[in-house]
Amino acid sequence: MLQALQTLVVLAAAPLYAGLISRAEAVVQSKHGPSIWQPYRDLSKLLGKGRVISEHATVVFRWAPYVAMACFLLVSTIVPIITAQPLPLAFLADLIGGAFVLGLASFVLSLAALDTGSPLGGLGASRTTWIGSLAEPALILVFFTVGVLSASDNPYLMNHALAGSPAALALPTHVLGAVAFFMLLLAETGRIPIDNPAGTIEISMIEEPRVLEYSGRDYALIKWGGWIKLFLLSSIFMNVFVLPWGLGSATGLGSGLLGIAALGGKLLLCGAAIVIIDSSFAKLRFFRIAEYLGGAFLLALIGIVTSYVIGK
């Protein structure tokens, strides 16, 4: 029951979260900006439209949006979003497994971009894969930093370990890991220091060129998947790294609903942080991205080594 509720919350609230962030960014820049319901309007418009598929496209291109969406939904079943007790399906994977599933989604989209043979798609696929290959080791190290504190790589147990000992939140290892994870969150979801989510200039796009060939309901699924990814990573960041409290227990629906309210509050904080970074930094030059991700890697590495010096 809660399992279904959690996935439904992720599906329903992810566009709202994206809409809130883009509206807040517009307000910060003294613009009126789109309504916070704009992502829903986009979705319903795209879902109602027919699709155009290149005659050279193969089955890879046709199936990629569905596989990617399935990956995002799978991750939404295994991480703590609204409850602190492991859900029935949570045994499927730990955080590293979750990262692999997200990696699979990205891989499938890159394959689809290569499939039609459009030059821009190949460009996007190569750029995204390059960034992903640099972000992945850092991400695994970040999971190790929480791992040494909670002696586990299961997100629920990490959450429990932190909620049980708030002093651990001030440990250097944890602080470094949290900062590194936030840097990677921005990289993985294509936010400002890496990529401009509102950018319309094809030559500077990093993730967008991969999906320019899609239309209609396929494009809707891909858009939706991107918002779900942002939503999921933000909730993992808040629930596992920053504020491990306020999650419901697995016993009843009521506590799950309370958990949704708490999640809303936490995501507002995380969204505010993203908006501040989006509006105060410029996009990095492409070859500086390696240094940015190297910085995240370094933070996580120092965090881990520090844990051996300072202790838990």
Binding site: L171, P172, L176, L299
Partner: peptide, 25 residues
Amino acid sequence: AASVPGVILDLDAVLILLSAFACLG
């Protein structure tokens, strides 16, 4: 690391290390 000044000192030392890295980078 069990006392509050100890935690502050540890965190401070890590930040000093990070600023050395920032300078290097």
